[in-house]
Write a protein that binds this DNA or RNA. Structure first.
Lengths: 257, 257
DNA sequence: AGACACGTTCCCCAGGCGGGAACAGATATA
DNA sequence: TATATCTGTTCCCGCCTGGGGAACGTGTCT
Protein backbone atom coordinates (compact mmCIF):
# COMPACT_ATOMS: atom_id res chain seq x y z
CA UNK A 1 0.00 0.00 0.00
CA UNK A 2 1.25 3.44 -0.88
CA UNK A 3 1.71 6.09 1.80
CA UNK A 4 -1.31 8.27 2.25
CA UNK A 5 -0.52 11.94 2.23
CA UNK A 6 -4.19 12.87 2.45
CA UNK A 7 -4.43 11.83 6.05
CA UNK A 8 -6.55 14.36 7.81
CA UNK A 9 -5.99 14.65 11.53
CA UNK A 10 -8.69 14.12 14.13
CA UNK A 11 -9.50 11.28 16.38
CA UNK A 12 -10.10 7.91 14.93
CA UNK A 13 -11.81 5.03 16.68
CA UNK A 14 -9.80 1.96 17.33
CA UNK A 15 -12.54 -0.64 17.58
CA UNK A 16 -13.95 0.46 14.27
CA UNK A 17 -10.52 0.13 12.72
CA UNK A 18 -10.26 -3.38 14.05
CA UNK A 19 -13.67 -4.24 12.69
CA UNK A 20 -12.68 -3.10 9.23
CA UNK A 21 -9.39 -4.87 9.44
CA UNK A 22 -11.38 -8.02 9.96
CA UNK A 23 -13.62 -7.20 7.01
CA UNK A 24 -10.61 -6.48 4.82
CA UNK A 25 -9.09 -9.76 5.81
CA UNK A 26 -12.26 -11.67 5.04
CA UNK A 27 -12.46 -9.93 1.71
CA UNK A 28 -9.05 -11.29 0.83
CA UNK A 29 -9.58 -14.71 2.24
CA UNK A 30 -12.96 -16.17 3.03
CA UNK A 31 -13.60 -19.07 5.35
CA UNK A 32 -11.15 -18.37 8.12
CA UNK A 33 -12.03 -18.47 11.80
CA UNK A 34 -11.36 -16.72 15.06
CA UNK A 35 -7.88 -18.04 15.75
CA UNK A 36 -6.57 -17.39 12.29
CA UNK A 37 -7.94 -13.85 12.24
CA UNK A 38 -6.55 -13.13 15.68
CA UNK A 39 -3.10 -14.30 14.62
CA UNK A 40 -3.20 -12.38 11.38
CA UNK A 41 -4.22 -9.12 13.00
CA UNK A 42 -2.23 -9.50 16.19
CA UNK A 43 -5.20 -9.39 18.52
CA UNK A 44 -6.40 -11.72 21.20
CA UNK A 45 -8.98 -14.31 20.33
CA UNK A 46 -11.48 -12.80 22.73
CA UNK A 47 -11.25 -9.44 21.05
CA UNK A 48 -11.75 -10.88 17.60
CA UNK A 49 -14.57 -12.98 18.93
CA UNK A 50 -16.56 -10.01 20.15
CA UNK A 51 -16.05 -8.29 16.85
CA UNK A 52 -17.20 -11.29 14.87
CA UNK A 53 -20.29 -11.48 17.02
CA UNK A 54 -21.02 -7.86 16.33
CA UNK A 55 -20.52 -8.18 12.61
CA UNK A 56 -22.56 -11.34 12.52
CA UNK A 57 -25.46 -9.74 14.32
CA UNK A 58 -25.26 -6.94 11.78
CA UNK A 59 -25.31 -9.52 9.02
CA UNK A 60 -22.11 -8.10 7.66
CA UNK A 61 -20.51 -11.50 7.84
CA UNK A 62 -21.87 -15.02 7.72
CA UNK A 63 -20.76 -18.25 9.35
CA UNK A 64 -20.12 -20.83 6.72
CA UNK A 65 -18.75 -24.24 7.55
CA UNK A 66 -16.12 -23.45 10.13
CA UNK A 67 -15.20 -19.97 9.15
CA UNK A 68 -16.68 -16.68 8.14
CA UNK A 69 -17.25 -14.92 4.86
CA UNK A 70 -18.64 -11.52 3.95
CA UNK A 71 -22.41 -11.40 3.69
CA UNK A 72 -24.56 -10.73 0.69
CA UNK A 73 -25.68 -7.49 2.25
CA UNK A 74 -22.70 -5.99 0.49
CA UNK A 75 -24.40 -6.61 -2.83
CA UNK A 76 -27.31 -4.57 -1.67
CA UNK A 77 -25.07 -1.80 -0.41
CA UNK A 78 -23.19 -1.78 -3.69
CA UNK A 79 -26.35 -1.34 -5.68
CA UNK A 80 -27.37 1.55 -3.46
CA UNK A 81 -23.96 3.12 -3.96
CA UNK A 82 -24.27 2.88 -7.70
CA UNK A 83 -27.66 4.50 -7.60
CA UNK A 84 -26.38 7.32 -5.47
CA UNK A 85 -23.68 8.10 -8.00
CA UNK A 86 -26.47 9.09 -10.36
CA UNK A 87 -27.93 7.76 -13.56
CA UNK A 88 -26.25 4.44 -13.39
CA UNK A 89 -28.84 2.80 -15.63
CA UNK A 90 -28.04 5.11 -18.52
CA UNK A 91 -24.34 4.58 -18.07
CA UNK A 92 -24.83 0.85 -17.97
CA UNK A 93 -27.01 0.82 -21.04
CA UNK A 94 -24.59 2.92 -23.04
CA UNK A 95 -21.54 0.93 -21.98
CA UNK A 96 -23.24 -2.35 -22.78
CA UNK A 97 -24.40 -1.26 -26.21
CA UNK A 98 -21.01 0.17 -27.14
CA UNK A 99 -19.37 -3.08 -26.12
CA UNK A 100 -21.77 -5.07 -28.21
CA UNK A 101 -21.36 -2.76 -31.18
CA UNK A 102 -17.57 -2.82 -31.15
CA UNK A 103 -16.93 -6.19 -29.59
CA UNK A 104 -14.26 -4.76 -27.32
CA UNK A 105 -14.00 -3.87 -23.64
CA UNK A 106 -15.89 -0.76 -22.61
CA UNK A 107 -15.63 0.79 -19.17
CA UNK A 108 -16.99 3.70 -17.23
CA UNK A 109 -14.95 5.21 -14.42
CA UNK A 110 -15.17 7.99 -11.88
CA UNK A 111 -12.63 9.64 -9.65
CA UNK A 112 -12.48 8.91 -5.95
CA UNK A 113 -9.64 9.53 -3.54
CA UNK A 114 -7.39 10.51 -6.42
CA UNK A 115 -7.86 7.24 -8.22
CA UNK A 116 -10.16 5.89 -10.90
CA UNK A 117 -12.86 3.47 -9.85
CA UNK A 118 -14.63 1.41 -12.45
CA UNK A 119 -18.37 1.78 -12.12
CA UNK A 120 -19.27 -0.55 -14.92
CA UNK A 121 -17.57 -2.76 -17.44
CA UNK A 122 -18.79 -4.72 -20.43
CA UNK A 123 -16.91 -7.12 -22.64
CA UNK A 124 -17.71 -7.44 -26.29
CA UNK A 125 -17.40 -10.79 -27.97
CA UNK A 126 -13.79 -10.61 -29.11
CA UNK A 127 -12.63 -8.59 -26.12
CA UNK A 128 -9.26 -9.22 -24.54
CA UNK A 129 -9.32 -10.54 -21.02
CA UNK A 130 -8.05 -8.02 -18.52
CA UNK A 131 -7.87 -8.24 -14.79
CA UNK A 132 -9.72 -5.05 -14.01
CA UNK A 133 -13.05 -5.61 -12.36
CA UNK A 134 -15.88 -3.36 -11.36
CA UNK A 135 -14.89 -1.48 -8.26
CA UNK A 136 -11.17 -1.80 -8.81
CA UNK A 137 -9.05 1.25 -8.20
CA UNK A 138 -6.40 2.30 -10.68
CA UNK A 139 -3.95 5.20 -10.70
CA UNK A 140 -4.96 8.21 -12.76
CA UNK A 141 -1.71 8.91 -14.58
CA UNK A 142 -1.42 5.59 -16.37
CA UNK A 143 -4.95 5.02 -17.62
CA UNK A 144 -6.86 6.88 -20.30
CA UNK A 145 -9.91 7.04 -18.04
CA UNK A 146 -7.83 8.55 -15.28
CA UNK A 147 -6.08 11.11 -17.42
CA UNK A 148 -9.29 12.12 -19.14
CA UNK A 149 -11.16 12.64 -15.88
CA UNK A 150 -8.21 14.46 -14.39
CA UNK A 151 -8.04 16.82 -17.36
CA UNK A 152 -11.49 18.16 -16.60
CA UNK A 153 -11.33 18.43 -12.84
CA UNK A 154 -11.06 21.90 -11.28
CA UNK A 155 -7.43 23.15 -11.40
CA UNK A 156 -6.95 23.10 -7.65
CA UNK A 157 -8.12 19.51 -7.43
CA UNK A 158 -5.74 18.55 -10.24
CA UNK A 159 -2.89 20.10 -8.27
CA UNK A 160 -3.95 18.30 -5.13
CA UNK A 161 -4.18 14.92 -6.79
CA UNK A 162 -1.01 15.38 -8.81
CA UNK A 163 0.90 16.34 -5.67
CA UNK A 164 -0.10 13.11 -3.96
CA UNK A 165 0.81 10.93 -6.91
CA UNK A 166 3.67 8.52 -7.08
CA UNK A 167 4.63 7.90 -10.66
CA UNK A 168 5.36 4.26 -10.86
CA UNK A 169 6.42 3.21 -14.36
CA UNK A 170 4.11 0.38 -15.39
CA UNK A 171 5.47 0.10 -18.93
CA UNK A 172 8.00 1.93 -21.08
CA UNK A 173 5.34 4.49 -22.02
CA UNK A 174 4.03 5.35 -18.58
CA UNK A 175 4.02 9.02 -17.68
CA UNK A 176 6.79 9.57 -15.17
CA UNK A 177 6.33 13.04 -13.81
CA UNK A 178 4.08 16.06 -13.35
CA UNK A 179 5.35 18.15 -16.29
CA UNK A 180 4.67 15.35 -18.71
CA UNK A 181 1.29 14.78 -17.09
CA UNK A 182 0.22 18.41 -17.32
CA UNK A 183 1.17 18.53 -20.99
CA UNK A 184 -0.85 15.41 -21.62
CA UNK A 185 -3.85 16.89 -19.82
CA UNK A 186 -3.59 19.96 -21.99
CA UNK A 187 -3.61 17.78 -25.12
CA UNK A 188 -6.65 15.92 -23.85
CA UNK A 189 -8.53 19.15 -23.28
CA UNK A 190 -7.63 20.32 -26.78
CA UNK A 191 -8.70 17.20 -28.62
CA UNK A 192 -11.56 16.29 -26.32
CA UNK A 193 -10.50 12.73 -25.65
CA UNK A 194 -7.66 10.85 -23.97
CA UNK A 195 -5.40 8.06 -25.17
CA UNK A 196 -3.56 5.33 -23.34
CA UNK A 197 -0.85 4.00 -25.63
CA UNK A 198 0.35 0.95 -23.74
CA UNK A 199 1.05 3.11 -20.70
CA UNK A 200 -0.60 0.85 -18.18
CA UNK A 201 -0.34 -2.62 -19.71
CA UNK A 202 1.87 -3.68 -22.57
CA UNK A 203 -0.03 -4.41 -25.73
CA UNK A 204 -3.20 -2.60 -24.71
CA UNK A 205 -4.47 0.75 -25.95
CA UNK A 206 -7.50 2.76 -24.89
CA UNK A 207 -9.44 5.89 -25.80
CA UNK A 208 -11.61 7.75 -23.30
CA UNK A 209 -14.09 10.57 -23.55
CA UNK A 210 -15.19 12.74 -20.63
CA UNK A 211 -18.78 12.76 -19.39
CA UNK A 212 -19.68 16.15 -18.01
CA UNK A 213 -22.71 17.78 -16.50
CA UNK A 214 -22.46 21.46 -17.29
CA UNK A 215 -18.89 22.14 -16.30
CA UNK A 216 -18.36 19.45 -13.70
CA UNK A 217 -16.93 16.14 -14.77
CA UNK A 218 -18.89 13.07 -13.77
CA UNK A 219 -16.58 10.41 -15.14
CA UNK A 220 -15.35 9.02 -18.41
CA UNK A 221 -16.11 6.19 -20.78
CA UNK A 222 -13.39 4.19 -22.45
CA UNK A 223 -12.82 1.48 -24.97
CA UNK A 224 -9.88 -0.88 -24.64
CA UNK A 225 -8.26 -3.33 -27.02
CA UNK A 226 -5.04 -4.88 -28.30
CA UNK A 227 -2.62 -2.62 -30.12
CA UNK A 228 -2.88 -4.87 -33.17
CA UNK A 229 -6.49 -3.90 -33.67
CA UNK A 230 -6.17 -0.44 -32.15
CA UNK A 231 -3.92 1.34 -34.63
CA UNK A 232 -3.04 5.03 -34.31
CA UNK A 233 -5.50 5.87 -37.04
CA UNK A 234 -8.43 3.98 -35.59
CA UNK A 235 -7.69 5.27 -32.09
CA UNK A 236 -7.84 8.89 -33.12
CA UNK A 237 -10.52 8.23 -35.69
CA UNK A 238 -13.51 5.96 -35.37
CA UNK A 239 -12.74 4.72 -31.85
CA UNK A 240 -12.48 8.23 -30.49
CA UNK A 241 -15.74 9.03 -32.24
CA UNK A 242 -17.40 6.04 -30.64
CA UNK A 243 -16.55 7.01 -27.08
CA UNK A 244 -17.33 10.66 -27.68
CA UNK A 245 -20.76 9.96 -29.01
CA UNK A 246 -21.46 7.50 -26.20
CA UNK A 247 -20.33 10.13 -23.72
CA UNK A 248 -22.65 12.55 -25.41
CA UNK A 249 -25.64 10.29 -25.08
CA UNK A 250 -24.96 9.88 -21.39
CA UNK A 251 -24.58 13.63 -20.96
CA UNK A 252 -27.86 14.34 -22.69
CA UNK A 253 -29.68 11.84 -20.54
CA UNK A 254 -28.25 13.03 -17.28
CA UNK A 255 -28.74 16.68 -18.00
CA UNK A 256 -32.46 16.60 -17.35
CA UNK A 257 -32.70 14.63 -14.16
CA UNK B 1 -37.66 -4.61 10.51
CA UNK B 2 -38.84 -7.94 11.85
CA UNK B 3 -37.74 -9.16 15.29
CA UNK B 4 -34.65 -11.32 15.19
CA UNK B 5 -35.07 -14.59 17.00
CA UNK B 6 -31.63 -15.78 15.89
CA UNK B 7 -29.86 -13.47 18.25
CA UNK B 8 -26.89 -15.30 19.62
CA UNK B 9 -25.62 -14.04 22.96
CA UNK B 10 -22.07 -12.83 23.47
CA UNK B 11 -20.59 -9.43 23.81
CA UNK B 12 -21.09 -6.96 21.06
CA UNK B 13 -19.06 -3.83 20.49
CA UNK B 14 -20.81 -0.55 20.77
CA UNK B 15 -18.58 1.64 18.64
CA UNK B 16 -18.78 -0.79 15.79
CA UNK B 17 -22.53 -0.76 16.07
CA UNK B 18 -22.52 3.00 15.87
CA UNK B 19 -20.25 2.91 12.84
CA UNK B 20 -22.62 0.60 11.01
CA UNK B 21 -25.61 2.64 12.04
CA UNK B 22 -23.94 5.52 10.27
CA UNK B 23 -23.27 3.39 7.21
CA UNK B 24 -26.86 2.17 7.17
CA UNK B 25 -28.08 5.71 7.39
CA UNK B 26 -25.87 6.84 4.54
CA UNK B 27 -27.06 3.93 2.49
CA UNK B 28 -30.61 5.16 2.86
CA UNK B 29 -29.85 8.79 2.41
CA UNK B 30 -26.67 10.08 0.87
CA UNK B 31 -25.30 13.58 1.26
CA UNK B 32 -26.07 14.28 4.88
CA UNK B 33 -23.58 15.72 7.35
CA UNK B 34 -22.46 15.48 10.93
CA UNK B 35 -25.32 17.32 12.59
CA UNK B 36 -28.03 15.50 10.74
CA UNK B 37 -26.49 12.11 11.42
CA UNK B 38 -26.02 12.95 15.09
CA UNK B 39 -29.66 13.93 15.40
CA UNK B 40 -30.91 10.92 13.55
CA UNK B 41 -28.92 8.44 15.63
CA UNK B 42 -29.17 10.27 18.92
CA UNK B 43 -25.46 10.76 19.40
CA UNK B 44 -23.40 13.82 20.05
CA UNK B 45 -21.80 15.60 17.14
CA UNK B 46 -18.34 14.90 18.45
CA UNK B 47 -18.99 11.18 18.55
CA UNK B 48 -20.32 11.10 15.04
CA UNK B 49 -17.44 13.25 13.93
CA UNK B 50 -14.82 10.80 15.14
CA UNK B 51 -16.64 7.99 13.44
CA UNK B 52 -16.88 9.84 10.16
CA UNK B 53 -13.16 10.52 10.33
CA UNK B 54 -12.47 6.88 10.86
CA UNK B 55 -14.69 5.77 8.03
CA UNK B 56 -13.27 8.41 5.77
CA UNK B 57 -9.71 7.35 6.48
CA UNK B 58 -10.78 3.83 5.65
CA UNK B 59 -12.32 5.10 2.42
CA UNK B 60 -15.61 3.59 3.40
CA UNK B 61 -17.29 6.92 2.98
CA UNK B 62 -16.52 9.98 0.87
CA UNK B 63 -17.04 13.66 1.41
CA UNK B 64 -19.13 15.07 -1.37
CA UNK B 65 -20.30 18.65 -1.41
CA UNK B 66 -21.25 19.22 2.18
CA UNK B 67 -22.19 15.75 3.16
CA UNK B 68 -21.04 12.18 2.97
CA UNK B 69 -21.89 9.23 0.80
CA UNK B 70 -20.76 5.63 0.77
CA UNK B 71 -17.55 5.03 -1.15
CA UNK B 72 -16.99 3.03 -4.27
CA UNK B 73 -14.94 0.57 -2.30
CA UNK B 74 -18.22 -1.21 -1.71
CA UNK B 75 -18.35 -2.11 -5.39
CA UNK B 76 -15.04 -3.83 -5.01
CA UNK B 77 -16.14 -5.64 -1.89
CA UNK B 78 -19.33 -6.74 -3.61
CA UNK B 79 -17.43 -8.24 -6.50
CA UNK B 80 -15.21 -10.13 -4.08
CA UNK B 81 -18.27 -11.42 -2.26
CA UNK B 82 -19.78 -12.68 -5.47
CA UNK B 83 -16.58 -14.46 -6.35
CA UNK B 84 -16.44 -16.09 -2.95
CA UNK B 85 -19.92 -17.50 -3.38
CA UNK B 86 -18.48 -19.62 -6.16
CA UNK B 87 -18.87 -19.86 -9.90
CA UNK B 88 -20.55 -16.55 -10.29
CA UNK B 89 -19.50 -16.20 -13.93
CA UNK B 90 -21.31 -19.35 -14.95
CA UNK B 91 -24.41 -18.28 -13.07
CA UNK B 92 -24.26 -14.87 -14.68
CA UNK B 93 -23.79 -16.27 -18.15
CA UNK B 94 -26.66 -18.71 -17.80
CA UNK B 95 -29.03 -16.15 -16.32
CA UNK B 96 -28.21 -13.64 -19.04
CA UNK B 97 -28.69 -16.08 -21.86
CA UNK B 98 -31.97 -17.38 -20.49
CA UNK B 99 -33.24 -13.83 -20.17
CA UNK B 100 -32.27 -13.08 -23.74
CA UNK B 101 -33.81 -16.29 -25.01
CA UNK B 102 -37.14 -15.81 -23.26
CA UNK B 103 -37.29 -12.03 -23.04
CA UNK B 104 -38.43 -12.18 -19.42
CA UNK B 105 -36.86 -11.55 -16.01
CA UNK B 106 -34.44 -14.22 -14.86
CA UNK B 107 -32.92 -14.28 -11.39
CA UNK B 108 -30.55 -16.35 -9.35
CA UNK B 109 -30.89 -16.43 -5.57
CA UNK B 110 -29.25 -18.02 -2.58
CA UNK B 111 -30.28 -18.39 1.02
CA UNK B 112 -28.75 -16.30 3.76
CA UNK B 113 -30.05 -15.63 7.25
CA UNK B 114 -33.29 -17.37 6.36
CA UNK B 115 -34.03 -15.12 3.44
CA UNK B 116 -33.39 -15.18 -0.29
CA UNK B 117 -30.74 -12.84 -1.65
CA UNK B 118 -30.60 -12.16 -5.34
CA UNK B 119 -27.13 -12.78 -6.68
CA UNK B 120 -27.85 -11.81 -10.24
CA UNK B 121 -30.75 -10.58 -12.30
CA UNK B 122 -31.24 -10.06 -16.02
CA UNK B 123 -34.13 -8.52 -17.84
CA UNK B 124 -35.17 -9.70 -21.26
CA UNK B 125 -36.51 -7.23 -23.74
CA UNK B 126 -40.19 -7.45 -22.91
CA UNK B 127 -39.65 -8.02 -19.21
CA UNK B 128 -41.95 -6.46 -16.64
CA UNK B 129 -40.36 -3.90 -14.38
CA UNK B 130 -40.06 -5.12 -10.81
CA UNK B 131 -38.53 -3.48 -7.83
CA UNK B 132 -36.26 -6.30 -6.83
CA UNK B 133 -32.61 -5.53 -7.29
CA UNK B 134 -29.46 -7.50 -6.92
CA UNK B 135 -28.68 -7.91 -3.25
CA UNK B 136 -32.25 -7.43 -2.09
CA UNK B 137 -33.52 -9.78 0.56
CA UNK B 138 -36.91 -11.41 0.23
CA UNK B 139 -38.81 -13.81 2.48
CA UNK B 140 -38.62 -17.45 1.54
CA UNK B 141 -42.27 -18.43 1.88
CA UNK B 142 -43.66 -16.03 -0.72
CA UNK B 143 -41.19 -16.40 -3.57
CA UNK B 144 -40.60 -19.33 -5.85
CA UNK B 145 -36.85 -18.95 -5.42
CA UNK B 146 -37.25 -19.04 -1.66
CA UNK B 147 -39.56 -22.02 -1.55
CA UNK B 148 -37.44 -23.95 -4.01
CA UNK B 149 -34.24 -23.38 -2.09
CA UNK B 150 -35.96 -24.15 1.18
CA UNK B 151 -37.28 -27.43 -0.19
CA UNK B 152 -33.76 -28.75 -0.67
CA UNK B 153 -32.11 -27.55 2.50
CA UNK B 154 -31.32 -30.10 5.22
CA UNK B 155 -34.45 -30.89 7.28
CA UNK B 156 -33.12 -29.37 10.48
CA UNK B 157 -32.32 -26.12 8.73
CA UNK B 158 -35.81 -26.04 7.22
CA UNK B 159 -37.25 -26.38 10.70
CA UNK B 160 -35.02 -23.67 12.01
CA UNK B 161 -35.89 -21.20 9.26
CA UNK B 162 -39.59 -22.05 9.31
CA UNK B 163 -39.73 -21.52 13.05
CA UNK B 164 -38.33 -18.02 12.71
CA UNK B 165 -40.71 -17.03 9.92
CA UNK B 166 -43.54 -14.62 10.18
CA UNK B 167 -46.10 -15.30 7.54
CA UNK B 168 -47.18 -11.95 6.29
CA UNK B 169 -49.85 -12.23 3.60
CA UNK B 170 -48.55 -10.28 0.59
CA UNK B 171 -51.43 -11.23 -1.71
CA UNK B 172 -54.49 -13.46 -1.53
CA UNK B 173 -52.36 -16.46 -2.53
CA UNK B 174 -49.52 -16.08 -0.05
CA UNK B 175 -48.76 -19.09 2.08
CA UNK B 176 -49.97 -18.33 5.58
CA UNK B 177 -48.61 -21.03 7.82
CA UNK B 178 -46.14 -23.85 8.34
CA UNK B 179 -48.45 -26.76 7.38
CA UNK B 180 -49.22 -25.20 4.04
CA UNK B 181 -45.54 -24.45 3.54
CA UNK B 182 -44.38 -27.98 4.27
CA UNK B 183 -46.93 -29.38 1.84
CA UNK B 184 -45.71 -26.99 -0.81
CA UNK B 185 -42.11 -27.99 -0.20
CA UNK B 186 -43.08 -31.62 -0.61
CA UNK B 187 -44.73 -30.82 -3.95
CA UNK B 188 -41.63 -28.96 -5.08
CA UNK B 189 -39.42 -31.91 -4.23
CA UNK B 190 -41.74 -34.21 -6.14
CA UNK B 191 -41.94 -32.19 -9.30
CA UNK B 192 -38.44 -30.78 -9.17
CA UNK B 193 -39.38 -27.13 -9.54
CA UNK B 194 -41.27 -24.47 -7.61
CA UNK B 195 -44.06 -22.12 -8.62
CA UNK B 196 -45.08 -18.71 -7.37
CA UNK B 197 -48.65 -18.07 -8.45
CA UNK B 198 -49.09 -14.39 -7.57
CA UNK B 199 -48.09 -15.15 -4.00
CA UNK B 200 -45.66 -12.30 -3.65
CA UNK B 201 -46.92 -9.68 -6.09
CA UNK B 202 -50.31 -9.57 -7.75
CA UNK B 203 -50.17 -10.31 -11.45
CA UNK B 204 -46.76 -11.94 -11.38
CA UNK B 205 -45.90 -15.61 -11.65
CA UNK B 206 -42.55 -17.39 -11.45
CA UNK B 207 -40.99 -20.83 -11.83
CA UNK B 208 -37.74 -21.81 -10.12
CA UNK B 209 -35.42 -24.75 -10.35
CA UNK B 210 -32.90 -25.76 -7.70
CA UNK B 211 -29.17 -25.68 -8.36
CA UNK B 212 -27.41 -28.36 -6.36
CA UNK B 213 -23.90 -29.60 -5.92
CA UNK B 214 -24.17 -33.25 -5.02
CA UNK B 215 -26.77 -33.13 -2.32
CA UNK B 216 -26.26 -29.60 -1.04
CA UNK B 217 -28.32 -26.81 -2.51
CA UNK B 218 -26.41 -23.82 -3.83
CA UNK B 219 -29.33 -21.66 -4.88
CA UNK B 220 -32.08 -21.51 -7.45
CA UNK B 221 -32.75 -19.91 -10.80
CA UNK B 222 -36.13 -18.42 -11.64
CA UNK B 223 -38.05 -16.84 -14.45
CA UNK B 224 -40.69 -14.21 -13.75
CA UNK B 225 -43.46 -12.71 -15.85
CA UNK B 226 -47.02 -11.42 -15.98
CA UNK B 227 -49.81 -13.93 -15.42
CA UNK B 228 -51.20 -13.06 -18.83
CA UNK B 229 -48.17 -14.53 -20.55
CA UNK B 230 -47.43 -17.09 -17.83
CA UNK B 231 -50.39 -19.45 -18.08
CA UNK B 232 -50.68 -22.60 -15.98
CA UNK B 233 -49.71 -24.69 -18.95
CA UNK B 234 -46.62 -22.72 -19.89
CA UNK B 235 -45.52 -22.49 -16.26
CA UNK B 236 -45.55 -26.23 -15.75
CA UNK B 237 -44.46 -26.89 -19.31
CA UNK B 238 -41.88 -25.01 -21.31
CA UNK B 239 -41.03 -22.45 -18.63
CA UNK B 240 -40.30 -25.13 -16.06
CA UNK B 241 -38.19 -26.87 -18.64
CA UNK B 242 -36.25 -23.70 -19.30
CA UNK B 243 -35.24 -23.14 -15.70
CA UNK B 244 -34.52 -26.79 -15.11
CA UNK B 245 -32.18 -27.03 -18.03
CA UNK B 246 -30.47 -23.79 -17.08
CA UNK B 247 -30.07 -25.12 -13.54
CA UNK B 248 -28.59 -28.25 -15.03
CA UNK B 249 -26.02 -26.37 -17.03
CA UNK B 250 -24.92 -24.51 -13.93
CA UNK B 251 -24.72 -27.73 -11.95
CA UNK B 252 -22.58 -29.40 -14.58
CA UNK B 253 -20.20 -26.49 -14.71
CA UNK B 254 -19.82 -26.17 -10.97
CA UNK B 255 -19.39 -29.84 -10.38
CA UNK B 256 -15.84 -29.92 -11.62
CA UNK B 257 -14.29 -26.91 -9.96
C1' DA C 1 -23.94 43.37 12.80
C1' DG C 2 -26.37 40.07 14.53
C1' DA C 3 -28.24 35.42 14.61
C1' DC C 4 -28.03 30.91 13.44
C1' DA C 5 -26.62 27.31 10.91
C1' DC C 6 -22.71 24.26 10.14
C1' DG C 7 -18.24 21.41 11.22
C1' DT C 8 -14.31 21.10 14.37
C1' DT C 9 -11.69 20.82 18.69
C1' DC C 10 -10.94 20.24 23.47
C1' DC C 11 -11.30 17.99 27.71
C1' DC C 12 -13.23 14.91 31.17
C1' DC C 13 -14.42 10.63 33.31
C1' DA C 14 -17.18 6.47 33.28
C1' DG C 15 -17.52 2.17 31.47
C1' DG C 16 -16.44 -0.33 27.35
C1' DC C 17 -13.16 -2.95 25.24
C1' DG C 18 -8.87 -5.45 24.63
C1' DG C 19 -6.22 -9.12 26.63
C1' DG C 20 -4.92 -13.03 29.36
C1' DA C 21 -6.27 -17.28 31.04
C1' DA C 22 -9.35 -20.75 31.98
C1' DC C 23 -12.90 -23.66 29.95
C1' DA C 24 -15.32 -26.65 26.62
C1' DG C 25 -15.70 -29.54 22.46
C1' DA C 26 -13.95 -31.78 18.49
C1' DT C 27 -10.45 -34.23 16.12
C1' DA C 28 -6.25 -36.55 15.88
C1' DT C 29 -2.49 -39.69 17.53
C1' DA C 30 -0.88 -43.54 19.85
C1' DT D 1 -9.27 -45.29 26.01
C1' DA D 2 -6.30 -41.91 27.31
C1' DT D 3 -3.54 -37.93 26.01
C1' DA D 4 -2.48 -34.10 23.27
C1' DT D 5 -3.74 -30.35 20.54
C1' DC D 6 -6.34 -28.07 17.86
C1' DT D 7 -10.61 -25.29 17.68
C1' DG D 8 -14.31 -21.64 19.66
C1' DT D 9 -16.22 -19.68 23.91
C1' DT D 10 -16.55 -17.40 28.42
C1' DC D 11 -15.05 -14.90 32.28
C1' DC D 12 -12.98 -11.20 34.62
C1' DC D 13 -9.89 -7.35 35.38
C1' DG D 14 -7.89 -2.78 34.64
C1' DC D 15 -6.47 0.57 31.41
C1' DC D 16 -7.62 3.82 28.23
C1' DT D 17 -10.68 4.87 24.76
C1' DG D 18 -14.57 6.65 23.09
C1' DG D 19 -18.93 9.24 24.00
C1' DG D 20 -20.75 13.64 25.52
C1' DG D 21 -20.92 18.43 26.66
C1' DA D 22 -19.42 22.83 25.66
C1' DA D 23 -16.56 26.09 23.53
C1' DC D 24 -14.73 27.63 19.20
C1' DG D 25 -14.21 28.97 14.21
C1' DT D 26 -16.46 29.80 9.93
C1' DG D 27 -19.84 30.72 6.48
C1' DT D 28 -24.50 32.17 5.24
C1' DC D 29 -28.46 33.96 5.87
C1' DT D 30 -31.54 38.08 7.42
Amino acid sequence: MSPQPNKRPGRTIRSVQIAFNIIDLLQEEAGIGVTRIADELGHSKSTVHSHLRTLEERRIIVREGDGYRLGLRFLDVASHVRDQIGNFDIVQKEVDSLAEETGEIVQFGVEEYGMVSYLHKAQGEHAVETLSRVGTQQPMYSTSLGKTILAYLPPERIEEIAAAMEYEPKTANTITGPEELFEELETIREQGYGIDDEENINGLRCVSAPVKNDETILGAISITGPSSRFTEDRLHGELADYVRSAANVIELNTKFS
